[in-house]
Amino acid sequence: MSGGMRLEAVTPENVDAVLELSVHPHQRDSVASVVRSLAEAYAYGERAWPRAVFDGEELVGFLMAFLDIEWGDGTVRSGLWRLNIGAAHQGKGYGRFAVEAVRDELRRRGAEELYVSWHQGEHGPGDFYRRLGFRETGELAGDQAVGVLAI
């Protein structure tokens, strides 16, 4: 890491690079593609918060938060919807930075909790999220475990 980690909006200037971002092949079944995420961001409008993750001038990842979405139990929640760190950039702290950046943004917006869901398969990110302090709620979002972090 160069210490220049930051989030940027997805713009006409960086969208092609963002669309080319690819996770490890064994993770492709665990996280939706950036293409799908950007389509959902368009459909959800202000409820989606897509961002490119940069270190210096290098694109290293993509994230998308969800903002004030009504959950199945009638509560309104915000959290991390997608996290795609490029295959060559994993294990370097970018995922932690991305989660912390979403936490900080949600805190700024007045949220008290950050939710996330994850694929529970062999290569799923459950251990990563638990190391960051998420606790499993016991709920499922489809077939994914749901975790929450107090912010």
Rank of each mutant, 00 (worst) to 15 (best):
G3W: 04
G4K: 07
E8I: 01
E8K: 04
A9K: 13
T11Q: 04
P12E: 11
N14Y: 00
D16W: 03
A17T: 03
V18S: 04
E20W: 02
L21H: 07
L21D: 13
L21K: 01
S22F: 05
V23R: 09
H24N: 15
P25A: 14
Q27W: 01
D29I: 06
S30I: 01
V31A: 01
V31Y: 02
S33L: 03
S37G: 11
L38P: 10
A39E: 15
A39Q: 14
A39F: 09
Y42V: 09
Y42M: 08
E46C: 02
E46P: 09
E46F: 03
R47I: 10
R47Q: 13
R47G: 03
W49D: 03
P50V: 10
P50L: 11
V53R: 00
D55F: 01
G56P: 05
G56N: 08
E57S: 04
E57H: 02
L59A: 03
L59M: 07
V60Q: 00
G61A: 07
G61I: 03
F62S: 02
F62I: 02
L63C: 08
A65N: 12
F66L: 08
F66K: 05
G72S: 11
D73W: 03
D73V: 05
G74Y: 08
T75L: 06
T75C: 00
V76Y: 11
V76D: 10
V76E: 12
R77I: 14
R77N: 07
S78D: 08
S78Y: 10
G79A: 09
L80K: 00
W81S: 15
R82A: 11
I85P: 04
A87Y: 10
A87V: 13
Y94D: 14
G95T: 13
R96H: 13
R96L: 08
R96Q: 15
E100D: 12
E100I: 04
E100A: 06
A101S: 15
V102F: 09
D104I: 00
D104K: 00
R107Y: 09
R107L: 14
R107K: 15
R108S: 15
R108Q: 12
R109L: 15
E113C: 03
E113K: 03
E113I: 02
L114N: 10
V116C: 09
W118I: 08
G121N: 05
H123K: 07
H123W: 13
Y129G: 04
Y129M: 02
R130C: 11
L132M: 09
G133C: 08
G133D: 09
F134E: 13
F134V: 13
F134L: 10
R135N: 10
T137D: 10
T137W: 01
G138M: 06
G138Q: 04
E139V: 00
L140K: 07
A141Q: 13
A141M: 12
G142M: 09
Q144V: 00
Q144R: 15
A145H: 11
A145Y: 12
V146K: 06
V146M: 11
L149Y: 05
L149M: 02
I151F: 01
I151D: 01
